[in-house]
Amino acid sequence: MDAGNCSWGSVFILEGLTDKPGLQLPLFLLFLLIYVASVAGNLGLVLLIRLSSPLHTPMYYFLCHLSFIDLCYSSVIIPKMLVNFVSERNLSSFPECMAQLFFFCFFGIDDSYMLAAMAYDRYVAICRPLLYHATMARGARLLLVAGVYAAGTFGALVHTSYISRRSFCGTNVIHHYFCDILPLLAISCSRDYSKERWVMVLVGFNVFACALAIVVSYAFIAASVLRIRSAEGRAKAFSTCSSHLAAVGVFYGSIVFMYFKPSAEDTTQEKVASVFYTTVIPMLNPLIYSLRNKDVREALKNILRGGTLPE
C-alpha cells in the first residue's frame, strides 16, 4: 500500500504521560516549571559565555553550543506536552509529527556528539596541555562543531525519511507523549523489519560511537591524572571533568534504557526514561556546569555585581 495514500492526511492521538485527569494540572505545572528553568538556565549560560571574555576558551565554546542545543531540544518536546496536558484530545497531524521527530532526532544526536567533542577537549587539555591551544584553535573548533551538526542532520534525515514512508492505516494512538521512533514504528501497518534493523543500527552507532569516544578520552585522562604526584593537582584535574561526567552518565543511561532494553507492553518505564533525556537533562545541564564550575560562578557574580567583564 502506498504510504502517501493514508499517512500524510493522518491525525495521531498522543497517549501522553498519564490518562488520569487528576494528574493533568500538577504535571502541567511541573513541566512548565522545568521548561522555564531549562530556558532560563541554558539561555543564561549562552549569554554569560558570550558576554564574559574570561569564558572565551575552547571548553566554554563547546559548552555554549551544548546549552544552545539543550535549549532547542527541550523546546521541541515540552511546549507540545504542555498543550496536551490542558487539551481534551492530544492531537498531532502527520506533518507536525514528522517535524517534531526530525528536530527531536537532530538535537538529540547533536547533544550526543557535542558531549563527545567536549570529552575530546578535556583529553587534549589534560593529556596534551602544551598543544592544547594549537589543537583547539578556532578552525579546529569550528570543524568539530560543524561535524556535530552534520551528524545530527544526517541522522535526523535518515530517521524521518524512513518513518514518513511508513503507512499508518490502523490505530492512530501513539503510546507516548511525543512522536518518537519506536512508538511510531509500533503502530505502523507497513513495517519492514530488515530496514528497521538498519535504523536501529544507526541509533546504536550514534550512541555507542559517542560513548566509546568519551570512555576512551576519560581512560587517557584518568591515566594522566593518576601520574600527577600532588593530591591538589589530581583534585583540580578531576574537578574540571566531574561536571561533564555527571551530564554524560544521566544522558546515556536514560537513552540506553529507552532504546536498547527488551520491549515490553507496559510503556510507563519507557516514558519515564524518555522524560529524563528530553526534559530533565536539558534543565540540569546548566545547573551542573554552573554550580560545579568556579569560572562560571565568578563570571556570574561579576555580572550580578554590575561590574565590568574583564578582558
Rank of each mutant, 00 (worst) to 15 (best):
M1E: 15
N5I: 15
N5H: 15
S7I: 12
W8E: 14
I13H: 11
I13F: 10
L14A: 09
E15T: 08
E15H: 14
L17Q: 12
T18P: 05
G22A: 06
L30H: 00
I34M: 04
I34G: 00
A37C: 10
S38L: 05
L47N: 07
L47V: 12
R50N: 07
R50Q: 10
S52R: 11
P54R: 09
L55N: 05
P58A: 03
P58W: 01
M59V: 06
Y61E: 02
L63H: 04
L63W: 08
H65T: 00
L66N: 01
F68V: 00
L71N: 03
L71I: 04
L71P: 04
S75I: 03
V76G: 05
I77N: 01
N84L: 01
E88L: 10
S93G: 13
S93Q: 11
F94T: 06
E96A: 12
E96Y: 08
C97G: 08
A99D: 07
I109Y: 03
D111C: 10
D111A: 13
L115Y: 00
L115D: 03
A117F: 03
Y120P: 00
Y120M: 01
D121E: 13
C127K: 05
R128L: 09
R128Q: 07
L130V: 01
L130N: 07
A134W: 05
M136I: 02
M136K: 06
A137T: 04
A137L: 03
G139A: 01
A140Y: 03
L144I: 02
V145C: 05
A146T: 14
A150Y: 09
A150W: 09
G152N: 09
G152E: 04
T153E: 09
F154Y: 15
F154L: 15
A156W: 07
L157Y: 13
T160I: 11
S164K: 14
F168E: 05
T171Q: 11
H176L: 08
Y177N: 06
F178C: 08
I181Q: 08
I181E: 09
L182C: 07
P183C: 12
L185G: 12
A186H: 12
S188G: 13
C189R: 11
C189H: 07
R191K: 13
S194C: 09
K195C: 13
R197H: 13
W198F: 14
W198G: 06
V199H: 06
V207Q: 08
A209G: 04
V216E: 02
S224Q: 08
I228R: 08
G233M: 00
K236V: 03
S239N: 07
C241G: 02
S242V: 12
S242C: 04
A247M: 00
V248N: 06
V248D: 00
F251R: 06
F251P: 03
Y252Q: 04
F257M: 12
F257E: 07
M258I: 11
M258V: 14
Y259D: 10
S263I: 15
S263T: 15
E265N: 13
T267D: 03
T268P: 02
Q269C: 05
E270G: 13
V272M: 12
V275N: 03
V275A: 08
Y277Q: 05
T279P: 00
V280L: 13
M283K: 00
I288W: 05
S290R: 07
N293H: 10
D295Y: 02
D295Q: 09
N302P: 02
I303M: 12
L309V: 10
